[in-house]
């Protein structure tokens, strides 16, 4: 009927599908490449032994521990702070200049590149507060970095809780705090959880900020003031300094697998959340 329009449509659709296919292809390639090269080198010894001669030999056990410490502590700090901020923004205030300022702060913070967080963590936590390159300094820096994500996702999850639940809860004689904790947070938990898990993934994969604040020690940490090296940084150092390609691939595979696992977990929680809401 209108051959030109139909023709254009066909071309456009083809181009679009090709580009989208290309994207998915690249993604699969990246993950596949790392896993194929890395998986064969992951052995029990690799996961449980300490690295020897700068990582050329041995395993990555202290590095896994270091990663868990830094990323876990970052989430332990940023999680409660972020969720409480979101509660404050949604339940305890009306939209005003004040909330606009808080939200603007969170949005700006979200856009700051990690290297700037690294610089800040270095002057503030490492030098000014005298923590030295340590788990604590790295975790605090990372917690600032993921804070906006947690605030934003928690806020969205809380806003998705129907307003009528609040009326019902008040009608049954709850105080505001009881309403927030027992109804709103309980209903928003999967959404909040997803945000926190994604932030955990971001903390694990961050390199630049950690490099400047947590150091790169290869020993098992004994306290929060010890310097550690995270998986992402270890991988960077191994590959960049050409220490051992084999170990680099294996480290990358561990890293990618854990990120994949974390993302799938988040995705699964989200799906359950959506399924329950509708």
């Amino acid at each position: 009927m209108r051959p030109i329009a139909v023709h254009t449509q066909r071309i456009a659709t083809t181009v679009l599908w090709t580009l989208a296919g290309l994207t998915i292809g690249v993604l699969l390639f990246i993950i596949g490449f790392v896993l194929v090269r890395g998986l064969p080198h992951i052995t029990l010894e690799f996961l449980t032994a300490a690295p020897r001669s700068m990582g050329r030999e041995g395993g990555v056990f202290p590095i896994i521990v270091g990663t868990i410490c830094v990323a876990g502590l970052a989430i332990l700090i940023a999680g409660p702070v972020g969720v409480l901020t979101a509660i404050y923004l949604t339940e305890y205030t009306r939209p005003s200049r004040l909330t606009a300022v808080i939200r603007f702060g969170a949005d700006c913070l979200a856009g700051i590149p990690s290297i700037i967080f690294g610089l800040f963590g270095f002057v503030f936590f490492v030098i000014r507060l005298g923590m030295g390159p340590s788990i604590l300094a790295g975790a605090l820096t990372l917690s600032l970095m993921v804070l906006p994500t947690i605030i934003r996702t928690s806020e969205e999850a809380i806003r998705a809780v129907p307003l009528s639940y609040r009326d019902v809860s008040y009608g049954l004689g709850s105080t505001r705090w009881q309403m927030v904790m027992r109804v709103v947070i309980r209903s928003a938990l999967p959404g909040i959880g997803t945000g926190i898990i994604l932030s955990l993934g971001r903390s694990i994969s961050e390199t630049a900020a950690v490099m400047l604040t947590a150091g790169s020690a290869l020993n098992l940490p004994r306290s929060a003031y010890d310097s550690v090296r995270t998986l992402a940084l270890h991988f960077y150092i191994l590959s960049r300094e050409g220490i051992s390609m084999e170990k680099a691939y294996a480290t990358a595979a561990v890293l990618v697998l854990s990120i994949l696992g974390i993302n799938l977990l988040a995705y699964w929680i989200m799906r359950r959340f959506i399924a329950r809401v509708t």
Partner: peptide, 9 residues
């Protein structure tokens, strides 16, 4: 979610 170092690598 893929770490930037992996992309770089």
């Amino acid at each position: 979610g893929i770490p930037s170092v992996v992309f770089g690598f």
